[in-house]
C-alpha cells in the first residue's frame, strides 16, 4: 500500500506560463522514457524478483518515481495556467488543447499516448535490471535535452533535480545487479533464471553451468 504526502519532493514555483515548453516537458510525464514508464516498470517488476534486496530497491525507486511524476505534472500545470487563447494558438498548444483543454494527460512530446509497451517486465532479474539501468540513462538524456531548450531558472532547477536523481538511481540499480550476480554462477550468469528455474544446483559456482564446456 501507499500513503500520500501533500507536498512536492522538490519545490516547483513557475511564474510565467510557457505553452511551448509545456509541450516538450510533457514527454517526461507520459513519453517513452518518462516518469510514468519508470514508476510502472519498477513497481511491476518487483513481483518476479528472487531477492528481497532487489525487490526493495525497485519498491523505493518506483515510489520515488511517483513523486517525480507529480513534479513533472506540476511543471506542466504551472506552465499552462492563465494562458490566453492567443498564446494557445501561437505556441502550437492548440492541438493538445482541443482534446484536453489544459488538463494533464500522459503523452510524449510528439503526441503519442502513454503505452505499457514503453517498458518491459521480463520476469528475469538480470534482464530486468539491465533494462532499469538503461531506462535511467534514457531519462537522464531526455532531461539533458530539455535543459538545452530552457533558460528560466524557475523551470531549470526542478528539472536539474530530476536529472540528478536518474544518476543516483542508475548507481543503485548497478549495485542491485552486483548483489544479484554474487548469488549466481559466476561462470555463466545467464544459465539460469533464479526467479523461475527451480534447480538450485545450477545457481552456485561449483555446479555445472550447463554450457558443456
Amino acid at each position: 500500500m501507499w500513503s500520500y504526502e501533500k507536498r512536492l519532493q522538490f519545490p516547483v514555483n513557475i511564474k510565467e506560463p510557457n505553452a511551448k515548453l509545456a509541450q516538450v516537458i510533457i514527454s517526461q510525464y507520459g513519453g517513452p522514457d518518462g516518469e510514468m514508464s519508470a514508476s510502472m516498470r519498477y513497481l511491476s517488476q518487483r513481483y518476479s524478483m528472487p531477492y528481497r534486496e532487489v525487490a526493495g530497491v525497485l519498491t523505493d525507486i518506483g515510489t520515488e518515481e511517483l513523486a517525480h511524476l507529480e513534479m513533472v505534472a506540476t511543471i506542466i500545470y504551472q506552465l499552462t495556467r492563465n494562458l490566453s487563447m492567443e498564446e494557445i494558438e501561437k505556441s502550437g498548444f492548440d492541438k493538445y488543447y482541443v482534446d484536453h483543454t489544459i488538463g494533464i494527460w500522459p503523452q510524449a512530446a510528439g503526441g503519442i499516448p502513454f503505452n505499457a509497451c514503453e517498458f518491459q517486465v521480463k520476469g528475469d532479474v538480470i534482464t530486468d535490471l539491465h533494462e532499469d539501468m538503461a531506462a535511467e540513462q534514457k531519462a537522464r538524456s531526455t532531461y539533458d535535452n530539455i535543459l538545452r531548450l530552457i533558460k528560466e531558472p524557475d523551470i531549470c532547477e526542478p528539472i536539474k533535480f530530476l536529472r540528478e536523481r536518474e544518476i543516483v538511481h542508475y548507481q543503485r540499480f548497478g549495485e542491485a545487479l552486483r548483489i544479484t550476480q554474487d548469488k549466481l554462477n559466476s561462470k555463466n550468469f545467464y544459465a539460469f533464471n533464479p526467479g523461475f528455474d527451480t534447480n538450485e544446483d545450477t545457481a552456485n559456482d561449483n555446479a555445472d553451468c550447463g554450457c558443456n564446456h
Binding site: 501533500k6 507536498r7 512536492l8 519545490p11 516547483v12 514555483n13 507529480e70 505534472a73 506540476t74 500545470y77 504551472q78
Partner: peptide, 9 residues
C-alpha cells in the same frame, strides 16, 4: 492546499 498550486516553496 494542493502541492501543484505552488504552496510548496
Amino acid at each position: 492546499p494542493l502541492p501543484w498550486e505552488g504552496a510548496c516553496v
